[in-house]
Design a protein around this nucleic acid. Structure first.
Length: 471
RNA sequence: UGGGGUGUGGUGUAAUUGGCAACACAGCAGAUUCUGGUUCUGUUAUUCGGGGUUCAAGUCCUCGCACCCCAACCA
């Protein structure tokens, strides 16, 4: 695996692996290691997910454990079966096929509901009739304690009755929520009576119309981990402040087994790239790109169509490691892994992108010392095709850094489509999806659907261009 | 404004846990080469700041500074 990076044995282990080792040596989970990858099926996987995926799956593999795929489908507003299928497909391509049926948070809705009633009975949860603005205002602010809701001290009986009627669909969306009864003065905002259930009369992609209330992320996540037997629940840094809540919920419940523990790490950011699902969806919706699999997209399906080898992505993820430092990796590093792979695997072929017809008259005079190279294909035998050259979708290293809006750095001319290219005949045999090197021009991926359309995966290292640039 | 987190070359990640700051990408110089590619060799450059402990500090203590996250019925 470690192509780069000198003897990996002598490199330090990251803090996550260190933690797992410590747990194993102290017998915390009796040596058991179980992780999970929990995507929400409301979009496709991107390069940022690849980091989490390799961490979750490889960590489990290294320690002889397992990693569950669990769809975090607690919000029926945006989730779709199409995304479930797409994610499964992308995962398999990346090298982590799921055997058997995937898991879903929605599988645990009934258990979650029972546990919610348990909290109500113990006076640890209550139905709040306030609207969202009131709840938000009551939460206070940074340095300002919150105030208790006027509905906070209802009787257990009333809470139970109301909660059951919420489930039955008797109330309007937004009219009531179930909240945990923790501490409105807590210094951590997440602990100021967080919402556990909201009312949604929306069709869920799996449970259909059987529910009118849906658990929030916080109420569902740790419990789902516990139900599945997850030991190490890895997530990104922004959930750091949720950890006390994660632990609090688990501490109140009669869990079937081990208590999972959440550990946070820094998400992957790349230069010239956005990975916000909302932004990516926007690019697709606005027609800025061809779709989720446009070769300029940082989605796994985009990278795949562009010709990035899955192994290159995996090795990149392994190489950059995990830490708790917010950082942005240069996309050139990813590209160097791509070149390293393609250099070994790609066939070399000749192509002329801007053909000029010329006649060679002194052909037999050959045999002299080569002074320069003629780049050519035979006009009589060449086949015709199209190449797509790409600039970075966002011209700035950090999209939006200057103005606050990443879209200001969008390069709308990032696609350079060349028709009428001339290819050497052997290229006619290129299988769909295969990547070849056009000598001196770069690596090009044959489109999976359109014959003789080639996407430039990445250029060659180009010393000439660098020398030019300097002057 | 309160809480939490993070600071190591241009970028990112390490440092046998107190013992010569290393690896990769990028850069620079050269060799090889029928791809201005590949391969090979050499090389530039780093511990946020001030104090302190110690024979010895990136690592420990202390006071600062900078940046990130948190007041969705998103995840």
């Amino acid at each position: 695996m470690e192509e780069r990076g000198p003897d990996a044995e002598h490199q330090g282990v990251d803090f996550v692996r260190e933690l797992v080792r410590r747990d194993n040596s102290t017998g915390t989970y009796a040596g058991r290691v179980q992780t999970r990858f929990p995507p929400e099926p409301n979009g496709y996987l991107h390069i940022g997910h690849a980091k989490a995926i390799t961490l979750d799956f490889e960590l489990a593999r290294e320690f002889g454990g397992t990693c569950n795929l669990r769809f975090d489908d607690t919000n029926p507003d945006t989730e779709e079966t199409a995304f479930v299928d797409g994610i499964l497909e992308d995962l398999a391509w990346l090298g982590y096929p799921i055997e058997g049926e995937p898991l879903y948070a929605s599988d645990y809705f009934e258990q979650l509901y029972d546990w919610a009633e348990l909290l109500i009975e113990r006076g640890l949860a209550y139905v709040d009739d306030s609207d969202s603005e009131t709840i938000s205002a009551g939460r206070g602010g940074y340095g300002k304690p919150g105030v208790e809701s006027e509905w906070r001290n209802r009787s257990v009986e009333e809470n139970l009755d109301l909660f059951r009627r919420m489930r039955a669909g008797e109330f309007d969306e937004g009219s009531r929520v179930l909240r945990a009864r923790i501490d409105m003065q807590h210094e951590n905002m997440q602990m100021r009576d967080p919402v556990m259930y909201r009312i949604r009369h929306e069709r869920h992609h799996r449970t259909g119309d059987s529910w009118h209330i849906y658990p929030t992320y916080d109420w569902a996540h740790g419990q789902s981990d516990a139900i599945e037997g997850v030991t190490h629940s890895l997530c990104t840094l922004e959930f750091d402040s949720h950890r006390p809540l994660y632990d609090w919920y688990l501490a109140q419940l009669p869990l079937p087994g081990d208590t999972p523990r959440q550990t946070e790490f820094a998400r992957l950011e790349l230069t010239h790239t956005v990975t916000s699902k909302r932004r990516l969806a926007g690019l697709v919706a606005d027609g800025v790109v061809d779709g989720w699999d446009d070769p300029r997209m940082p989605t796994l399906r985009g990278l795949r169509r562009r010709g990035y080898p899955a192994a290159a992505i995996r090795e990149f993820c392994a190489f950059i490691g995990v830490s708790r430092t917010n950082s942005r990796h240069q996309i050139e590093l990813l590209e160097s892994f791509v070149r390293q792979h393609l250099n070994r695997s790609a066939l070399r072929r000749m192509a002329v992108l801007d053909p000029i017809r010329l006649v060679i008259t002194d052909w037999p005079e050959g045999g002299r010392k080569v002074k320069s190279t003629m780049h050519w294909v035979s006009a009589d035998h060449a086949i015709e095709g199209t190449t797509a050259l790409y600039e970075r979708l966002f011209s700035a290293e950090v999209p939006g850094e200057a103005t606050g809006d990443p879209m200001d750095d969008l390069d709308r001319t990032s696609l350079d489509l060349r028709t009428g290219c001339r290819f050497e005949p052997a290229l006619g045999d290129t299988p769909p999806g295969a990547v070849v090197q056009f000598e001196r021009l770069g690596y090009f991926a044959h489109d999976p659907r359109e014959p003789m359309l080639f996407h430039r995966t990445v250029g060659l290292r180009d010393e000439w261009a660098r020398l030019q640039q300097r002057t």
